[in-house]
Design a protein around this nucleic acid. Structure first.
Lengths: 338, 338
DNA sequence: TCGCTATTTGACAGCGCTGTCAACCACCGT
DNA sequence: ACGGTGGTTGACAGCGCTGTCAAATAGCGA
């Protein structure tokens, strides 16, 4: 019942434990044939290195951390899934740290956790990505990090999609569908994303020579309830918009909800567009036109970037890395297209 | 720049490292005076035990694990949140292990992960809770576990709500609303929950002397797509039901979706009920009548039960513990009540 | 063929901590 | 005063792995 150790693998492969260690850690200077032998033995025995032992010997924890503040369950689940995929490939573990962005001692909390969990790197989600104090503390503690955000903070490697461009394209889509009275529901002001998405909207509207009356611009907070309020405001205008672009799917679903309850036909009388392509966008009727963000792939990329940064050159590369952009995709569904 | 070790503390306190270890781990049989000296030194030097070293030497990780197979993001997020709350209180970490229930080597995978991550205990979510092989392997490996499930497996401590009773009450609610042609959409057959929910439905229907024609019973898999198919089947009956009780919210939302697309008024012509009280149930129109499960509290309870089991008596208590039931609550919304 | 360098491999000493076990001590009853 | 008893302390051997450095081997030109 004893678990498989590096010695077992070494014996099985007919090499020294050090060579096994090299293969596991992807160190250079291992002959291809040797590497294959070792990998076969690892697979055969289903060997998994003991993290505690690795951590002790190498003074690393082989853990990366994910710090977040109350994201949508869907975002969290996908991000985690992507990160775990990457972690598995690299024999790393994932440590979670939910925090409160607005807490007085948020930075302290995170740093304390990072020290105790000994994480080798950290992924930050919005809006934590916008806390300059936190980024500074991580830099000071020499803990590599990647932010999941459009924030163009210098020196902060970021995995992102071009949110402004996506919002621009979505707005273009609405304009192309013949709409000229287009409303917009902004996202949470703590999130830089909200600004990006609004800027993309603005750009397309200006380019199309369309007006953006104040009554057509609602303030939301990325949740359903605030979306309903904003939608209610927009739809109560003397001349209501014929299309509403909400900064995320929850709020867009809220627009549809409001429309239903007012017997307004979607998309006949009101087209609705969202952002994120959450499952919800497929579960409301009609299906929601939205922007697909490959969150899972982004999580994977962020985790990989961190783990690559464990070597000296990798570390340098991460520091120099700017934005790592992934493609988004417009998903056109029944809420804008009959 | 070297960090403070147990040796430093021992030297400062004028005792052996073993005594420091005793104090840190709250072991008995340390004289009060000695303990104070050591504690003073710990504070003075700001000593924090190295988790890797502790883990390696003690073959414990101060981590509990969560094993799951593709649950709904909402379930996962809430369960995690509850478990993390409990972990924080006890200076434990949470390790995640997504697996594939149907994978040939699922049990092996979990066991290797458990050994590698050294988790001190494991929480299992459905349908993994129903794998007798997995439970047996965990018992054999002497790893304490708690299942999140109605499964009445002897010897498996479970955190749960009385799902059969909940389904019974929900069906009663539909009957009380005057419905007699009530359809049901079953959940994924891999999940024991599905059976419980159906049994509750059946009980209420029999008690009310109502018929359950085969055409009114659809098979779903807990996801939206399968819910649509089942809904489509039910609504295509020559005499369709006037109410549908779906085994979870995603499928209930699918029923509403189908109703909308067929211009069937909800709840006027068709009442719909779900199960779980996910955010989705509040985000479709009309709001979904459903059963609220306090997942977060359940996660917290499961994690606490595991960490309590780290002591000898606690372990015994866990082994003897049967079901730990938490109250559910019917949430009546617009999909059944005008 | 030999000698040289570059690549590949292995022996071994810890990393910081806990478990084991033996030594030590104080205090009891006789 | 003595041995017995149980609480208290410390010496030491690993836990499974990586870093260091030396040894072995391969590759190549002359």
């Amino acid at each position: 019942m004893r678990s498989v150790t590096i010695d077992d693998v070494a014996k099985a492969a007919g090499v020294s434990i050090k060579t096994v260690s090299r293969v596991v850690n992807r160190e250079p200077n291992v002959r291809a044939a040797t590497k294959e032998k070792v990998e076969a033995a690892i697979k055969e025995l289903n060997y998994r290195p003991n993290q505690s032992a690795r951590g002790l010997a190498s003074r690393r924890s082989y853990m990366i951390g994910l710090v977040y503040d109350n994201p949508s369950p869907n975002y969290l689940a996908n991000l985690q899934a992507g990160m775990i995929e990457a972690c598995r490939d690299n024999h790393y573990g994932l440590a979670l740290n939910p925090v409160t962005y607005h807490a007085e001692d948020m930075v302290e909390q995170v740093m304390h956790w990072a020290r105790q969990a000994f994480v080798d790197g950290v992924v930050l989600t919005p809006p934590l990505t916008d806390s300059e104090a936190l980024l500074e503390a991580l830099r000071a503690a020499d803990i590599p990090f990647v932010i999941m955000s459009s924030r163009g903070t210098a020196g902060a490697p970021a995995v992102l999609i071009d949110e402004e461009e996506a919002a621009y394209q979505m707005t273009r889509h609405l304009i192309d569908m013949g709409h000229s009275r287009i409303g917009f529901i902004k996202g949470h002001p703590d999130h830089y994303s909200s600004r990006c998405r609004f800027m993309g909207f603005e750009k397309a509207m200006k380019e199309g020579g369309l007006e953006m009356p104040a009554g057509y611009i609602g303030q939301g907070y990325f949740d359903f309830a605030s979306g309903r309020e904003a939608a209610s405001q927009l739809l109560s205008q003397p001349t209501p918009p014929t299309a509403v672009f909400a900064s995320n799917d929850d709020m867009a679903a809220a627009v549809i909800y409001e429309a239903h309850s007012r017997k307004i036909d979607v998309p006949g009388e009101l087209a609705v567009a969202g952002f994120d392509d959450t499952p919800l966008s497929r579960q409301v009727w009609p299906g929601l036109t939205t922007v697909r963000q490959p969150i899972r792939a982004m999580g994977r990329m962020a985790a990989e970037a961190l783990m690559d940064a464990m070597t000296a050159e990798g570390r340098k590369k991460l520091e120099e890395a700017g934005e790592m952009a992934i493609d988004f995709e417009l998903q056109l569904r029944g809420s804008t297209v009959r």
